[in-house]
């Protein structure tokens, strides 16, 4: 968030630290790796990292409200694949988009309902609904593992592959999303309420905020933004492979959020932080890809970084483990 200046000097925020580390890392890669500091690579980097960033923004809405959405990637994949399939079946673009956005929102509302009203902890709920969405989607909605963007929907493809003033459109979508969510979280009542909810749910309830509908709104928002991420992903490869659910993408998303200073205890962090975290992870992933590291080794490195981030978050924002509920 904002820079805090203590009595003796400059105390950097987590956001600034992360940006600093990113710069150092990028500098290191630039010297060590040929081909890292080229314009083409920077564009590739930003393009590939844009989806992660959008998902991070989606996740941050939930995490700021002291939740977590492990079903985000499943929602993203299944809803966007469903929209592609609708297009295949000859639906108009707007209709398909609207229907699948509503579908995503519905998934979020169901998640939020189970968490808020049945009082199942968010981690268990979204872990289970992740399986449910994927399984039900595969069996009842989707024809195959991979859905393709039909020829007619070239407008959609632009979303992933187009450019404006040399900037790849995924980056523009990310910027748009970031601006919108930033405005929502910092300038509207809803945003304030989400922060209040995450900071102290009990106090939020006592002050009269309708915490349960708010929870449902948070998850609905996350799912909706996730759907946008799914569209960008589908557009950039002109297809949607639902196997992405089995990857470790969801942990990359959590990593981006936690590194960016959105604490898992809720009520802290901002969209700017998520972007900083995205930059760090994007640089790291890009460097590892150029190094041609094995996928498993990449996972090990990412796991280690995520573990470090969680431990650091725990150190910076300790929670009361004696009163914490299971799955908090």
């Amino acid at each position: 968030m904002s820079t805090q200046t203590g009595g003796l000097g400059f105390k950097p925020s987590q956001e600034q630290v992360v940006l600093g580390v990113t710069a150092l890392l990028a500098l290191g890669f630039a010297f060590a790796l040929p081909g890292f500091a080229t314009l083409a690579n920077v564009l590739t980097l930003t393009r590939s990292v844009a989806i992660l960033g959008i998902l991070g923004i989606a996740m941050s809405v939930v995490v700021i409200g002291r939740g977590l959405d492990l079903s985000l990637v499943a929602t993203m994949a299944v809803t966007s694949a469903a929209s592609l399939q609708l297009l295949q079946h000859g639906w108009p673009l707007a209709g398909a988009m609207a229907l699948c956005l509503a579908f995503a929102v519905l998934i979020g509302v169901i998640n939020g309902f189970i968490i808020a009203f049945v009082e199942v902890p968010a981690l268990f709920t979204t872990l289970a609904t992740g399986f449910l969405i994927f399984g039900l989607g595969r069996v009842f909605l989707l024809d195959g593992v991979i859905s393709y963007v039909p020829e007619e929907a070239s407008a959609l493809v632009w979303l992933g592959q187009g450019r404006i003033c040399g900037l790849p459109s995924p980056v523009l979508v990310l910027a748009l999303m970031a601006l919108a969510v930033h405005f929502l979280m910092s300038r509207t009542t809803l945003g304030r309420f989400i922060y209040a909810h995450g900071d102290n749910p009990e106090a939020a309830r006592l002050t009269g905020i309708a915490v349960r509908p708010l929870t449902m709104t948070e998850y609905a928002l996350a799912s909706a933004i996730g759907f946008v991420a799914g569209l960008v992903m589908a557009a950039s490869t002109a297809s949607m492979n639902t196997q992405v659910i089995n990857s470790t993408l969801i942990f990359d998303v959590i990593m981006v959020v936690v590194l960016g200073g959105v604490s898992l205890v809720g009520g802290r962090g901002s969209v700017g932080g998520v972007l900083a975290g995205t930059a760090l992870i994007g640089t790291l992933l890009n460097g590892m890809t150029i190094l041609n590291l094995d996928n498993n080794i990449q996972n090990i490195v990412k796991g280690a970084v995520l573990l470090g981030a969680i431990l650091l978050d725990n150190r910076l924002h300790p929670r009361d483990e004696e009163t914490a509920r299971q799955g908090d």
């Binding site: 289970a128 399986f131 994927f134």
Partner: peptide
């Protein structure tokens, strides 16, 4: 896996 997810929930 869907059945298991539902059962877990």
């Amino acid at each position: 896996s869907t059945a298991l997810g539902a059962l877990l929930l």
